[in-house]
């Protein structure tokens, strides 16, 4: 579902990344939530200009920084 919605799997961080929509979903979050949750996440618009993290635990500044350094 994520793949067909344009997400790409980031194997080093084990997360799904949508560069255009600026969304990052961890493998843990995918495993711990329902398909409806995923569908909702995919459909949500992100006009903020900032990356949105969909994690089980809110990502620490170190996690955010590591992702942003890689994704630009």
């Amino acid at each position: 579902m994520l793949r067909s919605a344009g997400f790409r799997y980031h194997f080093d961080r084990m997360a799904y990344v949508h560069s255009k929509a600026k969304k990052i979903v961890s493998v843990e979050a995918v495993e711990d939530h329902s398909e409806d949750w995923l569908r909702e996440l995919i459909e949500q618009t992100n006009d903020s200009g900032d990356w949105r993290f969909y994690f089980d635990q809110p990502p620490s500044p170190a996690v955010v920084q590591a992702f942003l350094a890689e994704l630009g």
């Binding site: 979050a29 994690f55 620490s60 170190a62 590591a66």
Partner: peptide, 8 residues
């Protein structure tokens, strides 16, 4: 989660 250690 995110495969990063939190230095804090």
């Amino acid at each position: 989660e995110g495969r990063v250690f939190d230095p804090e």
